[in-house]
Design a protein around this nucleic acid. Structure first.
Ligand SMILES: [Mn+2]
Ligand SMILES: [Mn+2]
Ligand SMILES: [Zn+2]
Ligand SMILES: [Zn+2]
Lengths: 141, 141
DNA sequence: TCCACTATTGCGATTGAATCTCAATCTCAA
DNA sequence: TTGAGATTGAGATTCAATCGCAATAGTGGA
């Protein structure tokens, strides 16, 4: 967490921005939780703790966090965005169960390798990628 | 095209639905174009040809087409959906250039294989997957 | 300390895609 | 021809996300 705050501060400084208490609160909220949060989750969670940040500020801060590379915006097929922190986590993909909604994280060296290979061949400079796998989990199939 | 109409008719019959002229018009629009269309493109294109279908009907028909497996809903990172016809096309993924917006289609046996493997291992019954690769194309890198 | 300047915030309005409601229209079989 | 049910279209509605702008907080210099 201290680590996250340091990294974010560094990023903010590089952009001539400041670590305000609102920004810090959003940062903490997302780094405290393990899973995939939506903006509204963060808002509610903050409200419960009597800290506050407006919806606009939450979204604005999330944009900064994504831009800094500390947070990833993920699409779980809900029609709106989820966010997860990335610092200290290895890159992974998502399997989403169409019945129970469970999200299973996985990573696959082979896929990463093949993808890099393909981008090289196409002379495409990869900056990020997202893989969503839809289907039914062990319990629901 | 005749092929597409046949397939759609069959699907509709199986659901006790009918091939109306509006549904046919939407079908034709999407099968006439090569690329990735958004709902609004279809609306405009129809309007230009003096055919008509309301926005609601366009969306409703697109849902049917997706459900039938003839059309795929794709996310190109624009914040709204695009659609492409699938009948007679092999499955492919998308590279999206963050500068010029170009969409490069590719398919990779290795990735498909690894993914199936991973799902098997996880006992996850795969129904569909989407891979978006963001970066810069040859001309923009 | 006080002031002035700027960055930041919060509220509420706004946007835009997508969906919904429901009356009008169409289809088709009896 | 008639009526039940399917389908459509217009406009209202939803909902995430963004925007505009006045109020506020924080900073550095006088
Ligand atoms: Mn994840
Ligand atoms: Mn495509
Ligand atoms: Zn499940
Ligand atoms: Zn490009």
């Amino acid at each position: 967490m201290t680590r996250a705050i340091q990294t974010f501060t560094k990023y903010l400084n590089s952009k001539d921005l400041k670590l305000t208490k609102e920004r810090k609160a959003v940062l903490q909220e997302i780094f405290l939780h393990k899973g995939h949060l939506e903006a509204e989750d963060i808002l509610h969670s903050l409200r419960r703790k009597k800290k506050r940040a407006s919806r606009a500020t939450v979204y604005r801060t999330l944009d900064l966090l994504v831009d800094s590379g500390m947070v990833r915006k993920v699409d779980l097929g809900h029609g709106h965005s989820h966010y997860e922190h990335v610092l200290g986590h290895t890159h992974h993909e998502h399997m989403i169960c169409l019945k129970c909604g469970k999200v299973i994280e996985f990573s696959d060296k082979e896929i990463e390798r093949s993808l890099k290979q393909m981008c090289k061949k196409t002379e495409f400079k990869l900056t990020s990628h997202h893989l969503q796998v839809f289907g039914y989990c062990r319990d629901c199939r």
